[in-house]
Design a binder for these strands. Sequence first.
DNA 1: CTAAATGCAAACTATTTGCAACGAT
DNA 2: ATCGTTGCAAATAGTTTGCATTTAG
Lengths: 123, 123
Amino acid sequence: MTRQRRLILDLMRQSPRHMTADEIFAKAREEMPSIARGTVYRNLKLMEQAKEIARLEMPGGPDRFDKTSNPHGHLYCDGCGELQDIPVVGLVREIEDAIGTEVRSYQLTIHYLCPECRRKQAQ
Amino acid sequence: MTRQRRLILDLMRQSPRHMTADEIFAKAREEMPSIARGTVYRNLKLMEQAKEIARLEMPGGPDRFDKTSNPHGHLYCDGCGELQDIPVVGLVREIEDAIGTEVRSYQLTIHYLCPECRRKQAQ
DNA sequence: CTAAATGCAAACTATTTGCAACGAT
DNA sequence: ATCGTTGCAAATAGTTTGCATTTAG
C-alpha cells in the first residue's frame, strides 16, 4: 500500500461521484504533484482485479470507477450524464433460472432522463 | 445507399456473429479491396444513429455490432468470448415501475460460462 | 536489502476527422 | 452540376507499457 494508492482510494471514497481515471488523476495531482497518470491507471486496474473497486464502461466516454464492490446496476441520465447506482434485486436470480447456470457477473445500465432534465426538456 | 454501405450491411446479415468494425472491414476488403477502414467506421456510426443496427460496447475490447434493432440483453461467455442475444421480458417494465419514469434504452450484459466452457473447466 | 511500485515518455488500440477526389442523382 | 460519400493519412482519446529510479516492508 503506497502513498499513491492510498491517495487514489481516499479520493474515490471522498467523492460521491463515479469518477473517471483522469478526474482522479487531476485531483491526485493537487495533493501530490509528482504522481503520474500511469500510476493512477495502474492502481485502478490492480484494485479492479482485486475486486476492491469496479470499472464501469461508459458508451462514448472514458471508464468510470465505482468504490462499492457489491454488484448493482446503473442509472444513467442521457441529459446531464449523471450516474446513480440502483439495486437490481431479483434480476440475477431470474436470469439464472432462465439460463440454467450461474451468472458470474453482469453489467446493467439503464438510460433515462432524470427529473431535472425531464423538466428542462418539457419547457 | 452506396455500394460500400450495402456491402457492410450484407456482411452483417450473413454473419451469425456480432462482428467488430475491424472484422467487418477485413471481410469487406475481400470483396472490395479498395474500401477504407474509415468508411466502415463511418457507415457503422451512421447506421447506428439511424437505429438500423446497435452498437455493443465490450469490456476491454472493440465494440461489436448487432443487426437486430429490437432491444434485448446479451449473454457473454467469459471462456470463449461468444455472445448471444437474450430476450429480457419484463425487466424494463419492472424497472420503470421502480424508477417511476420511462426507460429510454438499456444495456445488459450477463457474464457466464457456456455449457462447453463449463465442461472444459470442470476437467 | 530486495521486490514491488513509481515517474516518465513512448507505444498502442480503437476510432474519428480533414480534405481532395469520386459518384450517384 | 451538386452534394453527399469515399479513400487516405493524420489526428485523437483513452489506456498501457518498458525502463531506469525510488520506495515500502
